[in-house]
């Protein structure tokens, strides 16, 4: 009898001599592992606005005493929103320790030279295609040079410089493709970047199946993996793709003219005038032509420039 009490005592000691339960450990580890992933917000493509001459910018003013240029000079750095994945225009070169290089980057370095007297006073901030305008509006960046097509809708959000490159929306297909223009791609999947003018233009070709992606180079990945049959974008971007994959070709006529301008805040028209003055200088002293030859294929053709005031 006494022995069984002893055993019962032992049993109770075995059952109850504990603090937290193992279910706590089980639940804690599971809850921690289930920390939900952040999901990126998807960009929306705005509807087309209307205006007479979207590419007409503000008349240049060479002298920029005071105002926003002075603020940038005091800060010591120009903050530029760029893309780091667009070969030829702006990309982080892994062979050069991830330095950002390209035609647009060199134009920005010219601005740095004009403001600070040296080309290196720039912070490059990478932006996705959909982030470009909000970054200008909320002051995250001073200026965006990232293959931005000037149009009426965007003119309601930001101010543009004069046109620094006349690009054209075209189509890239694998070199084995028999398609000769976008019309031949009915029922095919065509890749374009979310929030770009190119994907908006696809709406005029209802038989084409659009395949939107977040970043430009995602389109080339999709093409190489056979997930899409073609890419539509600006020729300057497509030529960069072709340089990375020679088994591709650019086809068809211009779908839409894509005049590129640098985007700046509407609060700083003085900065727009300053940038336009610099662009005018680059056109007249041969800098623009030299940089175009350095980065882009084909003969440099200076875009027509108009001012609205």
């Amino acid at each position: 009898m006494r022995r069984s009490w002893l055993v019962l005592g032992l049993l109770m000691a075995g059952l109850c001599g504990c603090g937290g339960t193992s279910d706590d450990a089980f639940n804690t580890s599971l809850v921690a592992l289930r920390t939900p992933a952040e999901t990126p917000a998807s960009g929306t493509s705005p509807t087309e606005g209307r205006c007479a001459h979207p590419t007409w910018s503000l008349r240049p003013a060479a002298r920029a005493d005071g105002g926003f240029v002075e603020a940038i000079r005091r800060r010591g750095r120009l903050i530029a929103g760029v893309d780091q994945n667009t070969l030829l225009l702006g990309y982080a070169n892994p062979l050069h320790d991830q330095r950002i290089e390209g035609f647009e980057i060199d134009l920005l370095r010219e601005l740095s030279l004009a403001i600070f007297g040296g080309p290196g006073h720039i912070k490059f901030r990478a932006l996705t295609t959909a982030q470009r305008f909000s970054a200008v509006q909320d002051g995250t960046v001073d200026i965006v040079a990232d293959a931005v097509t000037i149009n009426c809708t965007r003119l309601e959000l930001v101010n543009f410089s004069s046109v620094y490159l006349s690009a054209a929306q075209r189509v890239l297909v694998p070199s084995s493709s028999t398609a000769r223009s976008l019309r031949d791609l009915a029922g095919k999947r065509v890749c374009a970047t979310r929030g770009s003018t190119s994907i908006a233009a696809l709406e005029r070709y209802p038989k084409v199946i659009p395949h939107p992606v977040a970043q430009r180079t995602d389109c080339l990945v999709a093409l190489q993996r056979g997930e899409v049959d073609a890419i539509t974008s600006d020729d300057a971007i497509l030529l960069g793709f072709h340089a990375q994959d020679p088994y591709t070709k650019v086809i068809g006529p211009t779908i839409e003219a894509e005049p590129y301008g640098m985007a700046m805040s509407k609060h700083h028209p003085d900065f727009v005038r300053f940038v336009n003055a610099q662009l005018a200088r680059m056109r007249s002293d041969g800098t623009w032509r030299r940089l175009h030859r350095k980065w882009l294929p084909g003969t440099p053709r200076q875009p027509p420039v108009h001012y609205r005031d």
Partner: peptide, 16 residues
């Protein structure tokens, strides 16, 4: 492979 050739599409493959 793309990164070794200095092509920005390498970053897109990695993202993928």
């Amino acid at each position: 492979t793309n990164n070794r050739q200095g092509f920005p599409i390498g970053a897109a493959y990695l993202r993928r």
